[in-house]
Write a protein that binds this DNA or RNA. Sequence first.
DNA 1: ATGGGGATCGTCT
DNA 2: GACGATCCCCATC
Length: 185
Amino acid sequence: MPDALDFLIGDAKDVARQLIGWRFYHRMPNGELVGGTLSETEAYHQDDAASHAYNGLTERTRVMFGPPGHLYVYFTYGMHWCANIVTGPVGNAQAVLLRALIPDNGIVIMRGRRPGRADKELASGPAKLCQALSISGADNSKPVGNEQTGEFVLLPPTRTYHVEATPRIGITKNRDVLWRFVLLP
DNA sequence: ATGGGGATCGTCT
DNA sequence: GACGATCCCCATC
């Protein structure tokens, strides 16, 4: 993991807040970066009934128990992929779900992958984000870097942002904690 | 603008 | 065998 991404070793709810405003990209085979500014994240902990890691290590959650800075990609509702960045110290299964981003590069590619959608809807949900960036199970466990060459790229914010904390979306357990973070306009 | 329901299958009990 | 860390369409207001 590059030094600039050392903060991913931190606690998931701290990292989830920090990640708002960072720019996340999936590189095309031709080198083009497709993605934008992260605008919505959620933190998931090992001791968190809403987390896939709550019931311990399974084949699906193996990556969450591994080193930070890697993608945990899962399949849900029989048709959707969702992507997390693993955080926290090794062995302490934590991850940050990437729920939305504001496209700022490769927008034409994203429109092609999500035909008929308005630009603001290209990556405005966790499964939409994976569609727009072409992330699937084949990308599970891949590392996130900040190099010019990596397949998944995380670049620091270009300015400071205001962030709001809210309850997480779509869960039935542990609904009271404010572990969803949203970029304020 | 808002709300209800269907699609669809891997994962875990 | 039940249930999702969801999205989209369609009905109704």
